[in-house]
Computed example of a mutant assay.
Amino acid sequence: MGLLVNIIIIAVIIGFAGYQIYRAVKRSKQGKCAACDYDCEAKKLLNKSKKHAL
């Protein structure tokens, strides 16, 4: 019984990790970084340079 519980827990962890990798690859194909949801310093600099280019 304990072995079955451990296998289920490991499967859930590996499945979640695989899902996160899939999402990161999907976003990177769209040209977005993994942190595009956050207002990081790199994003601020990019937005600032786009404003000055116009």
Rank of each mutant, 00 (worst) to 15 (best):
I14T: 12
I10P: 00
D39N: 15
K50W: 11
L4G: 02
N47L: 15
S28D: 09
V12M: 09
L45T: 08
K29W: 02
G18L: 08
E41G: 01
K50D: 08
A53L: 15
V5K: 15
Y19N: 05
V12H: 04
G2F: 14
I10W: 15
G15Q: 02
V12F: 09
I9V: 10
K51Y: 10
R23I: 13
G15L: 01
K51E: 14
K44G: 00
I7C: 03
N47Y: 06
D39F: 08
I14D: 03
G2E: 12
A24C: 01
Y38M: 12
K51Q: 13
A11T: 14
K48Q: 15
S49D: 09
N6F: 03
L54V: 03
V25K: 06
C36F: 12
S28M: 15
G15R: 03
C36Y: 14
A34K: 04
K29E: 08
V25Y: 05
H52T: 05
N6M: 13
F16W: 06
A34V: 11
R27K: 13
K51G: 00
K43S: 13
C33A: 10
R27L: 15
K44D: 02
A34C: 07
C40M: 12
K51R: 15
L46M: 05
F16A: 14
Y22M: 04
M1E: 07
A11V: 09
N47W: 06
A53C: 02
C36R: 05
A34H: 09
M1C: 01
I10K: 12
Y22V: 01
K44S: 07
M1A: 08
D39H: 09
A17C: 10
K26F: 03
Q20T: 04
C33P: 02
G31Q: 04
S28P: 00
I7A: 15
I10V: 12
L3Q: 08
Q20M: 10
F16D: 02
A42L: 09
C36S: 10
V12N: 07
L4H: 05
G2M: 08
L46W: 06
